[in-house]
Simulated scan of single mutants.
Amino acid sequence: MKNELDSRFLLSVFEKVRQNGDKDGEAHILEGVKAYTDFDGYTLFIEDALVKLSFGFHNQYHFDYESASHYEAFEKKLKNIVNQY
């Protein structure tokens, strides 16, 4: 399965979680999705309990998950955040 999410979409999700989510240390959590950056702010991380996404320099991203259903549920959460907030 090829994961293709638009960089603008990912940045939108990140901002919506940061603006509307509950602060948890350096991260923010909204609808079960956690968003935070590395120490210098160049890499963004968006994750839930089953999927981790790192998004960095030159719009490169990497997903870490065990099954396609986990990814599909994660993508649905991200779309829901963009549409709701």
Rank of each mutant, 00 (worst) to 15 (best):
S12N: 13
V13A: 06
T37H: 06
R8V: 00
Y36M: 10
V13P: 04
E15Q: 13
G41D: 11
V17K: 07
F74S: 11
S12H: 00
T43E: 11
D48T: 12
H28V: 01
V33S: 06
L10S: 04
H28L: 00
Y61I: 08
K16R: 14
E47P: 01
F9V: 03
G56T: 08
A68L: 09
R18E: 13
H62P: 03
D40K: 05
R18P: 02
K77E: 07
L44A: 06
N80H: 14
Q60E: 09
N80V: 00
D22A: 14
K76E: 13
F57N: 06
E31R: 10
S12T: 15
L30D: 04
E47L: 04
A68C: 02
R18A: 08
E72M: 06
Q19H: 14
A27F: 09
A49S: 14
A68I: 13
Y65P: 00
E26F: 09
E47T: 03
L50A: 09
F55W: 15
E47W: 01
D6A: 14
S54T: 08
K16I: 10
K76Q: 11
D24F: 05
Y36I: 04
H28R: 05
E75K: 13
E4M: 08
V13M: 04
R18G: 00
H58W: 14
D48V: 13
Y42L: 10
V33G: 09
D6P: 12
S69N: 12
Y61H: 13
D40Y: 10
N80W: 05
F14Q: 10
R18T: 07
G32W: 08
K77V: 04
V82F: 06
S12K: 09
K2L: 12
L5K: 05
S69C: 01
F55H: 10
T43R: 12
N83Q: 15
Q60L: 05
Y61S: 13
D24G: 01
V33Q: 04
S12Y: 03
G32R: 00
D6G: 08
F63H: 12
F55N: 02
V51S: 02
S67R: 14
G41F: 09
N20C: 11
K79N: 14
F14P: 04
Q60S: 01
A73E: 15
F14W: 09
N83I: 01
A35F: 06
D38T: 15
S69H: 10
I29D: 04
K76P: 00
K23Y: 05
Y65L: 09
G25I: 11
H62L: 11
F55L: 08
F45K: 10
D22Q: 15
H70A: 15
I81T: 09
E26G: 02
E15S: 14
I29A: 03
S12M: 03
D64H: 08
E4W: 00
I29E: 07
S67N: 11
H70G: 01
L30E: 01
V13K: 01
L30W: 07
L30T: 06
Y71S: 03
K52T: 09
L53P: 02
H28W: 05
K16L: 13
F74T: 07
L10A: 09
G41Y: 12
Y65V: 07
L44S: 11
L53S: 06
A27W: 06
H28T: 03
Y71W: 03
L78K: 05
L50P: 00
G25P: 07
